[in-house]
Design a binder for these strands. Sequence first.
DNA 1: ACGCTACGTTAGCCACGGCTTACGGTAAGT
DNA 2: ACTTACCGTAAGCCGTGGCTAACGTAGCGT
Lengths: 109, 109
Amino acid sequence: MPNAIRTPDAFAALGDPTRRLIFERVARGPSAVGALAAGLPVSRPAVSQHLRVLREAGLVAETPDGARRIYRLDPRGIAAMRDWLDNHWATALAAFERFVDELPEEDAS
Amino acid sequence: MPNAIRTPDAFAALGDPTRRLIFERVARGPSAVGALAAGLPVSRPAVSQHLRVLREAGLVAETPDGARRIYRLDPRGIAAMRDWLDNHWATALAAFERFVDELPEEDAS
DNA sequence: ACGCTACGTTAGCCACGGCTTACGGTAAGT
DNA sequence: ACTTACCGTAAGCCGTGGCTAACGTAGCGT
């Protein structure tokens, strides 16, 4: 597995507001770098750097198209984040049930 | 609505690795500040600051217990993030379907 | 009242990271 | 082959934010 999805990287990637804007644009449809930068308040190299971070986090994927690079949404990133949220949500639920059952010290069933 | 959930703040909050650690500990069960700091590589004031950020993001909630402050998971934060992810995921799906159907300009069916 | 515990807050330091400018590299057009 | 378009990368600047140390506050016990 050359590039595994690291959920922490995904959260850190979407932590930046500019990166969220880029991600939203890409989610609305595949787009090239220049087209993305044209609708953003930052320069094109900045968009490239952000796309690199998003790509390493498994949130977007690039597809060469001649001299251009088309970026599209990568389902794995969103899936990983959803799994992470659901997992911790389930953990919290389990902890709450343990609390309701008034079990003082119990690791697992 | 005194404290609305701002999804961007939630992503930014979980973008920090230390804050994710704290959030995971809180998800495993309600805990006080000192107990959290004891199991983390940072000082107690740092944990307080992180908890403040997590609280303002709607990810955790505090419950006074004498001189201590018990922090527990706030469902609204996770729910907001899940909604955000699902929303953009649906957007990407819709864009992909438009691409497959080769419709140049079509909002929805 | 005194002391102790448990937190939040402030001030300040310092590393991290986002941004721009400049450069290099690749692909298509003529 | 030359030019143009499109993009990634390197260097450098500078604001943001996470961290610690020190201080101030509220609650409980003796």
